[in-house]
Design a protein around this nucleic acid. Structure first.
Length: 212
DNA sequence: CACCAGGCAAGTA
DNA sequence: TACTTGCATGGT
């Protein structure tokens, strides 16, 4: 399995090249983007992020002083905007209370403890928590998403009903514990998912992973 | 028109 | 524990 997972990575990397994740100007922006992109096309998230930047609100204090109503209006393009406004507020309260809105303090917390804390924030589930750990804080945590499960179940590496933790264990138990590797691998899987492994019209017959 | 997108929580049985 | 449903905009 170690060989297979590494071979798949190298194949994706040589076909698609570096994906340059996560596109953002700051770690804080990554965190907000991680909430905004829940079950949503990234293009719609970019519009919301642009709206927040335009208002100079894309910082902890700036978001905190917006009403949920107003925040919701600014992020409307990302969908589920009422819920996401509350989720951002929930994260902000946590971020100020435990870390004084300081990314470096948060990053110096024990990894397992921090993951538990993030999961305790209402609106932050496993994928969002792990995206924050990996892409905002550069922690070696493998992010699992719908594409990852679909790709690896179609290629018979994961069971179709595999849980988040089971999928994560396959990767983290068989790859070098390296944030840079996990960063690129997950981003490449999203790229593969978008182009070849969609729910409908999957181009399975020309998938670069066939025969890997 | 239908379907999907870098999920999550709450409700039901 | 294992499903199901609501949340919602914008692109294909």
């Amino acid at each position: 399995m170690k060989r297979r997972l590494n071979r798949i990575f190298l194949r994706l990397y040589s076909d698609f090249g570096p994906q340059h994740w996560w596109p953002a100007d700051s770690s804080f922006e990554v965190i907000i983007g991680a909430i905004l992109t829940q079950n949503t096309n990234w293009a719609n998230v970019e519009k919301a992020i642009f709206a927040l930047k335009e208002r100079k609100c894309l910082n902890p204090k700036g978001l905190l002083r917006l009403s949920s109503r107003r925040l919701g209006n600014l992020i409307k393009s990302s969908g589920y905007y009422n819920i996401k406004a509350e989720r951002i507020k929930n994260f902000l309260r946590f971020f100020f209370r435990f870390y004084s809105a300081d990314i470096r303090r948060m990053g110096s917390q024990d990894l397992a403890a921090l993951r538990s804390q993030l999961l305790a924030v209402k609106g932050v589930g496993p994928e969002t928590a792990d995206s924050i750990l990996l892409y905002a804080l550069n922690k070696p945590v493998f992010v699992i998403d719908a594409y990852t499960k679909r790709i690896f179940s179609r290629h018979r590496i994961l069971a179709e009903n595999a849980t988040y933790g089971q999928a994560q264990d396959i990767f983290m138990g068989n790859l070098k514990n390296d944030a840079k590797l996990f960063n690129e691998y997950h981003a490449l899987l999203v790229k593969l998912g978008k182009d070849y492994c969609r729910k409908q019209n999957p181009k399975c017959e020309i998938c670069p992973l066939n025969g890997q």
